[in-house]
Design a protein around this nucleic acid. Structure first.
Lengths: 154, 154
DNA sequence: CTGATTGCAAAGAATTTGCACTGCT
DNA sequence: AGCAGTGCAAATTCTTTGCAATCAG
C-alpha cells in the first residue's frame, strides 16, 4: 500500500509543476507508482476503479498521455507477448532493458553501463538528441532455454 | 525495381524450406524486399495490389505472420510516431537501431558494435537466449535539435 | 488430389473523440 | 468563476477469424 521507497512522490511533483490534480489522476498515479508489474490500460482502469469507482477508460488514456508528455512514465510494448497492448512504468533513474520470454511470458529487467555508453555514442555520432529509448529483447529466459534444449527446440 | 544487392532472394530461400509460394506471398515478399522504407500493413497491401490486384488485407497479415515466425522479417513500432501501426523490414545481417525524430518524423538507422556487445552481455549475464531485439530511440534528429535550440524548446 | 491458402465479410481489441456536465484552483 | 478535466457513447484504427472456394505441389 505504501509507495516503494526509491520512488518519488509524483502527485506533489506534478502539482508543483502546475498540473491540476483531480481524484482521478491521483488514483491513476498512485496505482502506477505502487504496483510493481507493468500495467496496461485495462488493468490500470481496473485498479484505479478500486480507488475512484466512476473513473472512465477515456480518463485513463488521457492521464497516460499526460504522464508520457511530462516524461514521468515510459511506454512499453513488451514484444507484444499478449496482443497489442501497451504497458506503462514510472521512469526510473537509469533506464533498463526488458527481456520478454516468448515461452513463459515472464519479463525480466536488465540494466547495463554498456547501454548507457551506447546511448552516448548515438547522441555523439548521429547528432541525435535522445528523449526516450526502448530496448526490448525477446527470446527464452534461462529456465525456458534449458527446456528448449531438452525438448530439442532451440 | 531490382532488389538491392545485399539482400538475398527470399522467394527461393523459402521455397527451399518447403514453404508454399503463392502469387500473393510472392507479391508481398517482393514488395518488402524491394522497397527501402519501412512499410506498415496498409502500404504493403497497397503496393502488393499493384502486382496481384485481388490480394486481401487478411493475406497480408497472414503472410507477415509467416515471415515473422520464419524470422525473415522484423517488426518495428518506430516509437508510434504515426498511430499504432507496425512496420516491417527484412532482417539484416547486423541488427540496427532506429532513431525516430518526433519533430520531423524521419527515421534514421544506426548500428554499433556496442549494441552487439550489449547483446552478448545480456545472454551471458542473464542467461537469456535472445531471438530478436528491438531498440528504438525517440528524440530530435540533428537538424531538428538545432531548430529546437533556436526556438528555445529543448 | 488434397491439405494449405485465399478472399470475403464480419468480429474483435485497443484507443480516440465530441460534447455536455462537473469540479479544481 | 472560469476553464481544464471528466464520463459517456459512439467512432476509428488496426488486426484477426470463420468459412466456403481455390490452388500449389
Amino acid at each position: 500500500m505504501s509507495p516503494s521507497l526509491e520512488r518519488r512522490d509524483l502527485v506533489h511533483e506534478l502539482r508543483a509543476k502546475g498540473i491540476r490534480i483531480t481524484p482521478q489522476r491521483r488514483a491513476v498515479i498512485e496505482v502506477i507508482q505502487e504496483v510493481r508489474e507493468h500495467l496496461d490500460a485495462g488493468s490500470l482502469l481496473e485498479l484505479a476503479r478500486k480507488r475512484h469507482p466512476r473513473i472512465d477508460r477515456a480518463t485513463i488514456y488521457r492521464t497516460i498521455d499526460l504522464l508520457k508528455k511530462l516524461r514521468v512514465v515510459d511506454e512499453l510494448d513488451l514484444m507484444h507477448l499478449e496482443g497489442e497492448k501497451h504497458f506503462y512504468e514510472v521512469k526510473t533513474v537509469r533506464e533498463h532493458i526488458h527481456l520478454a520470454c516468448f515461452r513463459c511470458g515472464r519479463i525480466e529487467e536488465f540494466s547495463s553501463s554498456l547501454f548507457e555508453q551506447l546511448k552516448s555514442e548515438i547522441s555523439r555520432e548521429a547528432g541525435f538528441h535522445i528523449r526516450v529509448t526502448r530496448l526490448e529483447v525477446g527470446g527464452s529466459c534461462q529456465a525456458c532455454a534449458e527446456k528448449d534444449v531438452q525438448e530439442g527446440n532451440r
